[in-house]
Structures are given as C-alpha cells and as structure tokens.
C-alpha cells in the first residue's frame, strides 16, 4: 500500500541520508552548518516515528538549535579573525583529505558488519522493557522515560550533569583572557529586542510546563533546560548583558546547583537505603525538586557554552574584583 506510514519512513530516511551527504560534502561551511540544523529537525520527526517523543523534543531544541548556534558562533568568530588576512566565507576543498583508501575501507567494514548484525535478526523482544515498565509505580512518576532517567538510572544522569559541568569548566579555561566581542553596537536591532522581550517570559513558562508535565507525558528537565538555554542564546545575541563569568557568585550557584541538589538528594536518602534510592512515598517530590534545579542549571550551562564558542565570554573588569 503506497500511502501507509512505511513509505513515509522510507522517504524520510532517504531525505536524512541525502541531507547528511549534502552537509558533509558542501564546500561552504556556512551551508554545511545550516543543512546540519535542517537535518536535526528531520531527525526529530524520525524520533516521533520510532515512538520517542521525549527525544524529539530534545533533538529539536538541543541537537538542531543549540548545536547549530554553537557552530555558527564558532564560524563567525573564526571568520572575523580571518578578516584581516582574507575575506569571504571559509571554504575547504572536500578532497583535501588525508587518508582516502583506508578510511573508505574501515567505514565500509564497520557499517557492513553493523548492517549484517541488524538484518540477521531484528525481531528480538528482550531488553529491559518488562523490568522497567512493570516497576513504574515504584518510581514515583508515570512517564517511563522520566522514571528511568531520574529514578532507575539516576546515577547515570547525575554523572552526566557532572560531564556538563566539566565541559563548562573546560570552556572557561579555554576562554581565559579573551577579549569579548562587543554586541552593543549602535545599530542594534529594535525588532530583535522586542521579539526577545516578548518571548522570554513565554519561554520560561513553557520550560516550567515541560518540567511539570514530564511526570506523565513527554517532557522533563533536559528539554526544559534546552529551552532556557535557547532563550539565553537569543538574549545574548540581542545585546543583553547576562552575568556569565564565575567571578560572580550567583553564576557559580546557578551552574553548580543542579549537580549539587542531585548529589544532596542522593546522599540524604542514605539513612537506611542505598545512594539515590528514593523512598517510594516521596519519590515524586524528590524527582520534581531535582528536575527544577537541573533545568535552571542546564539552561545556564548551555548559555555559557554558547557564549564561550561565540566569544561573548569575558572576565569582569578589574574594579569588580573576584
């Protein structure tokens, strides 16, 4: 039957592969990045087709939006630096490559092996579905993905927020002593400012809604944090000055707060249980508190990551002090 979902999946898959090829082979780096962002949006549709709406939300916000902003910020910074030497967009001949033959061989072997493994037995019903889904009531939430992230595999999530913090520390270290680009140009756009003024409260509201609704529907801390990060990026780009450097104590509290709350929650329940084993009665409330703290932290972390890549991160001037 030509009109069922399978033909849509085939079309979408062909589009995804075509976009990936176009992004990787384009001569113009700007074009590559824009096609990459488009690819991210189509992957979000693919997530919906494999019944993963949480991932669709995260991919659209983080995978397409924030990553695209990171790339564009870095590209802009590199091009500005090069403006003295040469003008125009950065290009790189796609066949200016090092390893030709063995790269092709390695890729073909690996993908061939994976594809053979997939095709030789795909209808396997195992995994952890039964165990996870049957114990949902113990977890304190209804959405299975939230239950797994914040209760059954909470240790992974705690360490993953730690990884985010490590990346932020790395970005601070790398951007030490850089002169910040001044976005307070005289030709700052009133339209952008009004747009940001209008949209920031709505973004905060939607982020709060996403955290709240993650209890029983797709949502949760990461998606909400990504929204806040996107709002932070747009605020920075419209010229608003945000406190971003760790010399300010409030920045340290916001950035580290999520990890700290998570860690404390895990430790405080340890009176007669294991680390991060929430008591069944209060699991829902503990998870909500952790999610709220992590949302704010993730939003701030993503904003700082963007500002590091786009050269908007600078140490405060001397009169402010450490």
């Amino acid at each position: 039957m030509l009109l069922d979902g399978l033909s849509f999946d085939l079309l979408l898959s062909i589009a995804l592969i075509a976009l990936a090829t176009a992004a990787l082979r384009a001569r113009d780096l700007f074009k590559s990045i824009v096609i990459f962002m488009l690819f991210g949006l189509l992957v979000a549709i693919a997530w919906v087709r494999v019944h993963a709406p949480d991932l669709a939300l995260a991919e659209a916000a983080i995978g397409s939006g924030i990553t695209g902003a990171l790339f564009l910020g870095a590209l802009n910074r590199i091009e500005r630096k090069r403006k003295g030497a040469a003008s125009g967009r950065l290009e790189n001949p796609v066949n200016g490559s090092t390893s030709g033959a063995w790269a092709v061989l390695l890729t073909l072997v690996l993908t061939g092996l994976l594809a053979m493994a997939v095709l030789s037995g795909w209808s396997y019903s195992g995994g952890l579905a039964d165990e996870a889904l049957s114990r949902i009531d113990e977890s304190g939430v209804v959405n299975p993905v939230t239950a797994v992230i914040l209760n059954f595999r909470a240790y992974d999530t705690l360490l993953e927020i730690g990884v985010l913090l490590l990346a932020v520390l790395g970005v601070y270290a790398v951007c030490e002593g850089q002169t910040m680009r001044d976005l307070r140009r005289r030709d700052r756009s009133k339209v952008l400012e009004t747009f940001v003024h209008l949209l920031s409260p709505m973004v905060v509201l939607t982020a709060g809604y996403l955290v709240w609704v993650g209890y029983k529907e797709p949502g949760g801390a990461f998606q909400a944090g990504a929204l806040l990060g996107g709002a932070g990026v747009v605020l920075l780009l419209s010229g608003r000055e945000l406190p971003l450097h760790t010399a300010r104590t409030v920045v340290r509290i916001i950035l580290g707060g999520g990890f700290l709350v998570f860690l404390l929650a895990g430790l405080l329940v340890m009176k007669d249980r294991a680390f991060l084993e929430y008591p069944r009665a209060s699991a829902k409330h503990i998870i909500l508190i952790i999610e709220l703290a992590c949302t704010v932290s993730i939003g701030a972390i993503l904003t700082v990551l963007f500002s590091g890549c786009a050269n908007l991160l600078a140490a405060p001037s001397e009169e402010e002090g450490p």
Partner: peptide, 24 residues
C-alpha cells in the same frame, strides 16, 4: 523499552557539551 531512550537523551546532551568544548 525506555532504557535506550534515557541513554540517548543523556547522550544528546553530552554530545552538545562535547561539541561546545571542541569548538571552544
């Protein structure tokens, strides 16, 4: 099976932080 969903969700966020550090 919700466990791979959770792993990939954290994976997406870790990928963006690695990308950010690499670009910086």
């Amino acid at each position: 099976d919700p466990v791979p969903h959770a792993l990939v969700l954290t994976g997406i966020v870790v990928a963006v932080s690695a990308t950010a550090l690499l670009l910086a």
